[in-house]
Design a protein around this nucleic acid. Structure first.
Length: 863
RNA sequence: GCCGGGAUGGUGGAAUUGGUAUACACGGCGCACUCAAAAUGCGCUGGCUUCGGCCUUGUGGGUUCGAGUCCCACUCCCGGCACCA
C-alpha cells in the first residue's frame, strides 16, 4: 500500500482489473435473483455535464449495492442519438448529423468509463443504428395494421420565412429563433398513436406503482386528467347544433354565452364573408402552439352575431369566438358560466357579458359573483326545478334529465391527447409508410425493413432535407406497384426512448425486436433519471410497454418497478455589466470570494485581474450563464472517486445539488483520511481475533456504533435512497474510530472490523479506492464481489439510554436510565433531577407523558 | 395561466412514524507541528442574555402535552406544459 493516496494510479489499476475479469458483464445464467438497474440514457451532446455525473453515480451506487446483496445485476448504457441538436450542430459546423453524433458518442463513452461505472458495455447501442430503429419501424407497421395508428391534422409552429416547422423551444416570444419572423399556427397531416385507448389503464395502474414518488404519480394523473361530465347540444337556428362538454352540469342554468375556437368550422364559414372576423381569426393564428403561451396570452374575442338555444331554459345566449378556446381539446366549443368559472368570468367582465349566479355557498354564506367567480361546489339557486339541490346531487339529476330528454349524454373526458409522432425533421427514424395516389398510405412490407435514413446529409434549416431527396422518397406502391412517394417525416425521438430499456436485454438479436431474455430482466427494478421526465418520457414508456405486452413481446404490465427522480445541478453565477447593458458572465472557477468575519460572502473578484465581479445567485448550470463546471477538469484534478463522493454527499438525490469547490476538496480530504486510517492500522500490530464478550468499554461502544451504522447505511441506501446520510454516517464512524484509545482491550480487533465495515459500506460510492483498501486489510479478490456487512444485533444492545426531560414541552434536562426501564422508574428518575425540580416548584402536575427511549414530558399548571 | 416541488446557522444539508432542531461537511476563529508557509491534526463555532434563561426551521394563523414535520392562507424560487431531451 502506497503511503499517499494517488487517485489516478488507483483508478487506472482498479479499472484495468474490472476490464480483465469482465465482472460487470450481466449473464442470464448467473446465480442470484436478477436485478435490472437503469439510468436514463444520455443524448450524445459531446461532453458529459454534472447532471450526467450525478444521474449515473446514483444508478451505479444502487447497482453495486444490489450486487453486494447477492443479486445478479444488469446495468447497461447506450445513446439516445436522434434529435434536434445534431441538426443545429450540422448547420453550424457543416458536418452531417451522423458524423457529429458518432464522434460525440466516442468522447462521452471514454468519459463514462473514466468514472468507473459498472456497466455491461457489451449491450451498448445507439438509437440511430438501423439495427435498433428497424424494430420500431416493424412495430409501427404492426400497430398500423392493428388500428392503433391513424392520420389526422395537427397544429404546428410554422416559420413563414424559413418555410419550416419549428420546435417549441425554437419559438422565442412568438418569433422564429433564426429568421425572427412571427410564427404562424398551421395544420398539417400527421401520424398519431392511440394512447387514449390506454388512458384508463395508464391511470389506474398508477395506484399500484408504489415504488414511484407520489409527486410523479400525481403529475401523471393530472396529465391524463380523466373527468366525468356531460356532453350536450345547444341548438342554433339555421345551422348545426353546437356540442359542448362540461364537468359542471350543476352550473348549466348559469350559462350566459358560448365561445368557439377560431378554427371552429362555423367560425371559418362566417369569416369568408366577414373581413373583420377573418382578420381576427388570422390574428389568433399567430404565435406558438405551446400550452404555456396559449394559457398566458391576453384573452380576446368577438361576438359572432348569432345565438344558441339553452337546452333547458330555451333562452338564447350569444355565441362568441375566443382565442383561448382550443379546437384540439374536446369539441372546440365551450359553454361559459362566468359566475362559477374563473376564465369565463375574466372574459365576461372584459366584454360586459352577463354574470348569473346559480350556485350559493353550502354554509349559507354570502358571495359576490360579480366581483369574482365562485368555483366551489354548493347549493343550486336560480336553477328551475333543481334549485335547492346540492352540487353533487344536481350533477346527477341534471345529467339524468338531459339523457332522458335526449338532449345530452354522460361522458368520460380526458385531458390526455393522442400522441402525435410525426416530425418534419431529418435526424430521426423514417416512418415506414409509402403514399400511393390509389391505395393511400401503405405500410412498408416487413421484408423491406428497415427504411434506412441516408446519413451523408447536412440539413440547412429550411424544411426537411428528405423531402428534397428523390433518391429517398421515390418509391413504388407495395400494393399496386405504381410509382408512389415515401413518407419523409420521421418519428418523434420519444419513440426511441420508449422501448430502449427492453432492447438492452437482447441487444444482439438481429432476427427479432425482443426475445425471452426480455422477461428475464424486465421490469426494470430501479430506474434513475431527471424529474423533468416525470410526465412525457415516463408516460410514453409506460404506454409503449403495454403495446409490447399486447404484441406478446413482454409479460409484465409496467416497465419500471421503482423510480428515483434526481434534482438538477446548480452553481453560483457571477457577472460584470457591459457598457451596452448586457452582462459578461464569469465562470465560478475564475472567481475568488471574500468573506466577512462570520464567514458570510462579502464580495467576489476575478482571479486574473483582481477586480470585483457581481454575485448573481444560484442557477441551473448552463452555457448562457457560464456557470457550468466541466466534470472532466474535476476528474483530472481529484479523480473519479472524489467526484462520485461529492455528488452523493452534497445533497439528497431528489433535491437540486449545489456546486462547491470547497465541498469537492472536503470529499477528497475524507478519502485521504480513510486511506491514512487504514495505512496506520495495517502498519501497526497484527489484529488478534475479535472476542465480542471481552471488550473494554470504549471498544464495546465503538463496536455498537459500527453495527448501528451498518443498520442505518443499509436502510439509507436500500430503502430511503438518501446517499448523503449514508456517507455522513460513515464519516461519523471514522471520526469515532479516531477517538478509540490505542491500549483499550480489543481495540485492534474492533478497529479491523470497523475499517472493513466502512470500506464495504463505501464500496458502491467510491469503488476504486475501497478496492485497494480492501486488499490492504488482508483480502483477496474484488470488494465489488464481497457481501454487504451484516448487522450483529447482539453488539447493538446497550445497558443505558439517554432521555430528554421536558416541562410543558420545553427541554429542561437529560437523564440516563437503564435500557427498557418502566414508566414509573423513568418518571421517578426525571423528578429527581435538580433542574427539573426547579421548574416543577409551585406547579401542579396535570399529566406525565413518557415516550420510551425518547423523552418524559411533565404537563404542569400553576397551583 | 395550469400541474408538481422547494425554502432549516455564514453555506450545502440532518432530524426516517408528531417526540432532545441544527448530525455530517464546507467556511470562519483559535491552538499544535514548522525558521516560515503549505499540508495535516486537535478544539470552538445559530442569535440574544441581567447567565436564571429567552428566541430561532420563508411569512401569518390554527390543531396538539409537544409541530421543521399535520391543517388553512400567503411570499419567493425551481421543474413540466405535448416539436429540447
Amino acid at each position: 500500500m502506497q503511503e499517499h493516496y494517488s487517485p489516478e494510479q488507483v483508478e487506472t489499476e482498479v479499472q484495468r482489473r474490472w476490464d480483465e475479469t469482465g465482472c460487470f458483464r450481466a449473464r442470464e445464467d448467473a446465480a442470484g435473483e436478477p436485478f435490472y438497474c437503469l439510468s436514463m440514457f444520455p443524448y450524445p451532446s459531446g461532453k458529459l455535464h454534472m447532471g450526467h455525473v450525478r444521474n449515473y453515480t446514483i444508478g451505479d451506487v444502487i447497482a453495486r449495492f444490489q450486487r453486494m446483496q447477492g443479486r445478479s445485476v444488469l446495468q447497461p448504457m447506450g445513446w439516445d442519438a436522434f434529435g434536434l441538436p445534431a441538426e443545429n450542430a450540422a448547420m453550424q459546423n457543416n458536418v452531417p448529423p451522423a458524423t457529429w453524433t458518432r464522434q460525440n458518442i466516442e468522447q462521452m463513452r471514454a468519459q463514462l468509463q473514466r468514472l468507473g461505472f459498472a456497466y455491461d458495455w457489451s449491450r451498448e447501442f445507439a438509437t440511430c443504428d438501423a439495427d435498433y430503429y428497424r424494430w420500431e419501424q416493424w412495430l409501427f407497421v404492426r400497430l398500423l395494421k392493428k388500428g392503433l395508428v391513424y392520420r389526422a391534422r395537427a397544429t404546428v409552429n410554422w416559420d413563414p420565412v424559413d418555410q419550416t416547422v419549428l420546435a417549441n423551444e425554437q419559438v422565442i416570444e412568438g418569433r422564429g429563433w433564426r429568421s425572427g419572423a412571427v410564427v404562424e399556427r398551421r395544420e398539417m397531416p400527421q401520424w398519431f398513436l392511440r394512447i387514449t385507448d390506454y388512458a384508463d389503464e395508464l391511470l389506474e395502474a398508477l395506484d399500484d406503482l408504489d415504488g414511484w414518488p407520489d409527486q410523479v404519480r400525481t403529475m401523471q394523473r393530472n396529465w391524463i386528467g380523466r373527468s366525468e361530465g356531460v356532453e350536450l347540444e345547444f341548438a342554433v337556428d339555421g345551422g348545426e347544433p353546437l356540442t359542448v362538454f362540461t364537468t359542471r352540469p350543476d352550473t348549466l342554468f348559469g350559462v350566459s354565452y358560448m365561445a368557439l375556437a377560431p378554427e371552429h368550422p362555423r367560425v371559418q364559414e362566417l369569416a369568408q364573408n366577414d373581413a373583420e372576423l377573418a382578420a381576427f381569426v388570422a390574428e389568433c393564428g399567430q404565435g406558438g402552439v405551446a400550452e404555456a403561451d396559449l394559457a398566458t396570452m391576453e384573452k380576446k374575442g368577438r361576438a359572432l352575431g348569432f345565438t344558441a338555444r339553452h337546452p333547458l331554459t330555451g333562452e338564447d345566449v350569444p355565441v362568441w369566438v375566443a382565442n383561448f378556446v382550443l379546437m384540439e381539446y374536446g369539441t372546440g366549443a365551450v359553454m361559459a358560466v362566468p359566475a362559477h368559472d374563473e376564465r369565463d368570468h375574466e372574459f365576461a367582465t372584459q366584454y360586459g357579458l352577463p354574470i348569473r349566479q346559480v350556485i350559493a355557498p353550502a354554509d349559507g354564506g354570502e358571495c359576490d359573483v360579480q366581483a369574482a367567480a365562485f368555483t366551489e361546489a354548493g347549493v343550486l339557486v336560480n336553477s328551475g326545478d333543481f334549485t335547492g339541490q346540492d352540487s353533487e346531487a344536481a350533477k346527477a339529476a341534471i345529467a339524468d334529465h338531459l339523457e332522458q330528454a335526449g338532449l345530452g349524454r354522460r361522458r368520460r373526458n380526458y385531458r390526455l391527447r393522442d400522441w402525435g409522432i410525426s416530425r418534419q425533421r431529418y435526424w430521426g427514424c423514417p416512418i415506414p409508410v409509402i403514399h400511393c395516389d390509389d391505395c393511400g398510405a401503405v405500410p412498408v412490407p416487413e421484408e423491406d425493413l428497415p427504411v434506412r435514413l441516408p446519413e451523408e446529409v447536412i440539413p440547412d434549416g429550411a424544411g426537411s432535407p428528405l423531402a428534397r431527396m428523390p433518391e429517398f422518397f421515390e418509391a413504388t406502391c407495395p400494393q399496386c406497384g405504381k410509382p408512389a412517394r415515401r413518407e419523409t417525416d420521421t418519428f418523434d425521438t420519444f419513440f426511441e426512448s420508449s422501448w430502449y430499456f427492453a432492447r438492452y436485454a437482447c441487444a444482439d438479436n438481429d432476427t427479432a425486436m425482443l426475445d425471452e431474455r426480455a422477461d428475464h430482466w424486465l421490469p426494470v427494478d430501479q430506474y434513475v433519471g431527471g424529474i423533468e421526465h416525470a410526465v412525457l418520457h415516463l408516460l410514453y414508456a409506460r404506454f409503449f410497454h403495454k403495446l409490447l405486452r399486447d404484441e406478446g413481446l413482454v409479460g409484465s404490465d409496467e416497465p419500471f418497478t421503482r423510480l428515483l427522480t434526481q434534482g438538477m445541478v446548480v452553481a453560483p453565477t457571477f457577472y460584470r455589466e457591459r457598457g451596452d447593458g448586457g452582462k459578461d458572465w464569469i465562470n465560478p472557477v475564475d472567481v475568488e470570494l471574500e468573506r466577512a468575519e462570520d464567514g458570510s460572502v462579502k464580495a467576489a473578484r476575478h482571479r486574473e485581474d483582481g477586480q470585483p465581479v457581481t454575485i448573481g445567485g444560484m442557477e441551473k448550470m448552463s452555457k448562457s450563464k457560464n456557470n457550468g463546471v466541466d466534470p472532466q477538469a474535476l476528474i483530472e484534478r481529484f479523480g473519479a472517486d472524489t467526484a462520485r463522493l461529492f455528488t452523493m454527499f452534497a445533497a439528497p438525490p431528489d433535491l437540486s445539488l449545489e456546486w462547491s469547490d470547497s465541498g469537492v476538496e472536503g470529499a477528497q480530504r475524507f478519502i485521504r483520511r480513510l486511506w491514512r486510517a487504514v495505512r496506520e492500522h495495517v502498519g501497526g500490530a497484527a489484529a488478534s481475533p475479535l472476542d465480542p464478550e471481552n471488550l473494554s468499554e470504549p471498544a464495546g461502544d465503538l463496536r455498537r456504533k459500527l453495527h448501528d451504522t451498518i443498520a442505518k447505511v443499509t436502510d439509507d441506501i436500500g430503502r430511503r435512497q438518501t446517499f448523503n446520510t449514508a456517507v455522513a454516517a460513515n464519516m461519523e464512524l471514522l471520526n469515532e474510530l479516531g477517538r478509540l484509545p490505542e491500549d483499550a482491550e480489543g481495540a485492534i480487533a474492533v478497529r479491523q472490523e470497523v475499517l472493513e465495515g466502512i470500506v464495504r459500506m463505501l464500496a458502491p460510492i467510491i469503488p476504486h479506492v475501497t478496492q485497494v483498501l480492501w486488499e490492504a486489510l488482508g483480502h483477496d479478490g474484488l470488494v465489488a464481489d464481497t457481501r454487504w456487512p451484516q448487522v450483529d444485533e447482539a453488539a447493538r444492545q446497550s445497558a443505558r439510554e439517554t432521555l430528554a426531560v421536558q416541562v410543558n414541552g420545553k427541554r429542561r434536562a437529560e437523564i440516563a436510565v437503564p435500557a427498557g426501564a418502566d414508566r414509573e422508574s423513568v418518571e421517578r428518575i426525571a423528578r429527581e433531577d435538580e433542574n427539573v425540580q426547579r421548574h416543577l416548584e409551585g406547579q401542579g402536575i396535570v399529566k406525565v407523558i413518557v415516550v420510551p427511549g425518547r423523552l418524559v414530558n411533565f404537563v404542569v399548571k400553576p397551583q
